[in-house]
Design a protein around this nucleic acid. Structure first.
Lengths: 399, 399
DNA sequence: TAACTTAATAAAGTCACTGGAAAAAGTAAG
DNA sequence: CTTACTTTTTCCAGTGACTTTATTAAGTTA
């Protein structure tokens, strides 16, 4: 409890309720808002006047009468303000402008090998500066929200650890706030994207959701009761390092049999090599001389074309992933697990087979009402993730 | 958000803040409460008067003056009301009276084999009835809080599934409320005990805590941000069924290599048998003819005496448990893991060795600030668990 | 056009909070 | 032992956001 009870708090609470009603159920008339929330019409009118003045809400036409004065419809004005979303990874920096519904209005992508860049943070700050200079009205900017992999202390706004980019204890929130005089947020990428799925994705009705990011490594973001679950040090959800075989491969984390070592891209490459040597037929090498030339994208494409070798390779991956997911399901009992891996879709062979496998292995009682699907945010998932962290706080319940 | 802003809510919020201050920092004077919470002295006086009338707070003497009127100390009156705590397991039913600080004032234990009892629920309700009949003033009873293993829908108050006691979809909350005209709560036992550790245990300052119950099976309760984490179906925390070896023993849950099969009492018995045949010296069999006569208590005692065979057996268990705990640490990033297994203490060989092992295997960043200890609630942990679920709601922040 | 509906605004009244003054109860020093 | 100063607690008037009860605005229906 941050605040004490007072008239100011009262008003804040009611204004929050009213704005929420307009956001979720708008266009809606004043009297309908009053009825739905059991508030007096007067209270609604005065709160709405303030919201209209701020520009957060606009009048959206007049409705049909059913025997009396026509209702004036109010609607949320998501474009009246904007958020600067930023995504930093070892291969790209994305900066974009998003409205208050996490729609991307404009973006700039800087692709490079930032893993060996001498000063990623300084570079990023400069690019943010460039972008802000090109914006007309900075008073409409609600703040800068940055997401990046690694262990992040979101509360204090510090990057605690990012091994790949060699970052440690960087007070990025403070740096941004002092340099640009704008509010700033920083959070882990997978966590933020999970929150975006929960708030703006297809399975938004589900309060407990896990997002799994496959690719070079494997990461996960966990949303519990509509909130990011960060653990005590902001390091919760290290799904890549759960044990699936206590006699397995020694991992650089010190443990044995970590999931990551069985399902990441290098291990898939290894498996492709094995199958090539065994002579499994494939069209994946068409146009390529060496295995190294085959990219993750090529593999995913071959998978979609149901290439025999790709299917054999993926079978092992599915086996391991299913094992990991069962552990996740047993511990978190989520409603949805969303998997992001390049262009993979919910009706792809990979997801279908994975779903089957998990249903086979997990408790029936957990399987009922559990969905395993592909991500639903589309191409701008990083920026949407960044924005949703900021929006979460901006539209947070006052207390 | 359940309520709208209004004068009533304002008062409730302030009264909550004031009661909380008295509970946590009492004995304390009115003016000190006002200062600490930035409330006006008037507001504090009027709220305190109400609390005094209700009996929740009492005057606890007068303090020393530092040059003015002496402060009147107010203190929480935990004994002014009581909660009926109930624990149902397959081997015992415990019914007890607890005050508002989860201290057990009186209890009744019914030990029997309830696994094969024709009607555990009916029997329990009758015993609750007997107990309530013996209470003088039922108007002081805040309600009945029941805990039991299995998958529980705590919100609706339904036992969804308890395989051992053959219970399925039993609306126990409703049954209790209608029969005794008292408020009722039902929750999973491990979850409740975890909450009790968080609220009334030694590590109460830690907001993220995991409690692990060892014995016949293995269960866990998870507290995140001072609240029980239940997952979407009330089935979160099935720690016993996480995979530690994907080629391991086939479990009755359908998966392979579930932790439970490696660390429960039957598997320890099996291991003892193996070591006996190998001729490992032991004093554990003193006074026993057959292995079946050696109870879990005997084994734990031998362990405490550092019996060679017991130590050999426990080494394997530690190995598996450490593996499981690392997965837990990687996913939840908790501040404390508390282990309950009979009389085992924090400085026992078992916990010491387990702690070492986990530190060896998990990420350094998660190990800093992670404690692995034995439970701290003492003998009445079940009843304290039950009470803490009820108290959580009774003293909940109003909204 | 009159009678009824429904939406939005205005005016009056309510109530818990705040701030300042007063009362209660002490301490400290001449 | 009286006076001056402190600290705690209570009393009282004033504030402001809410609710309730008109009133005004704008329609529909017969």
């Amino acid at each position: 409890m941050k605040k004490t009870g007072g008239l100011k708090l009262m008003q804040e609470i009611n204004q929050y309720i009213i704005l929420k009603t307009i956001r979720e159920r708008g266009p809606i008339s004043r009297s309908e808002i009053a009825k739905q929330n059991k508030l007096s019409p007067t209270t609604v009118t005065s709160a709405v006047n303030e919201l209209l003045e701020e520009g957060m809400v606009t009048v959206g036409g007049v409705g049909e009468s059913s025997g009396g004065r026509k209702p004036v419809y109010l609607q949320f004005a998501p474009d009246s303000k904007f958020i600067l979303g930023v995504s930093i990874t070892n291969s790209s920096i994305i900066i974009g402008k998003l409205n208050m519904e996490a729609d991307v209005k404009d973006k700039e992508v800087y692709a490079d090998d930032f893993q060996s860049h001498p000063d990623v943070i300084g570079y990023t700050l400069d690019r943010i500066g460039d972008y802000l200079d090109s914006c007309e009205d900075l008073s409409l900017c609600l703040g800068v929200s940055i997401i990046t992999p690694g262990i992040i202390d979101a509360k204090k706004g510090i990057i605690r650890n990012n091994a790949k980019m060699h970052l440690e204890n960087i007070a990025l929130k403070e740096m941004v706030e002092e340099r640009f005089r704008l509010k700033a947020w920083i959070d882990n990428d997978a966590n933020s994207i999970a929150l975006a799925e929960n708030k703006y994705g297809h399975y938004g009705a589900k309060r407990n959701l896990i997002y799994i990011q496959m690719g070079d490594g494997i990461g996960s973001g966990i949303v519990i009761e509509d909130q990011i679950f960060r653990g005590s040090h902001g390091g919760a959800g290290e799904f890549g390092h759960i044990t699936i075989d206590n006699n397995g491969i020694l991992c650089e984390c010190g443990n044995r049999g970590c999931l990551e070592n069985y399902v990441n891209w290098p291990s898939i490459q290894e498996s492709i090599k094995g199958h090539l040597e065994k002579g499994t037929p494939t069209r994946m090498m068409d146009g390529h001389q060496k295995l190294e030339e085959v990219s993750q994208g090529d593999f995913l494409k071959a998978l979609q074309d149901e290439d025999e070798l790709a299917l054999s390779v993926i079978e092992e991956t599915i086996e391991y992933m299913a094992n990991g997911l069962v552990t996740l399901v047993n511990l978190f009992n989520p409603e949805v697990i969303l998997i992001g891996w390049g262009p993979i879709t919910s009706d792809s062979y990979f997801i279908n087979r994975l779903r089957e496998k998990v249903k086979e292995l997990a408790f029936d009682i957990f399987i009922d009402g559990l969905e395993i699907q592909a991500t639903t945010l589309g191409g701008d998932f990083q920026l949407k993730g960044a924005a949703s962290v900021a929006l979460e706080e901006i539209f947070e319940v006052p207390l």
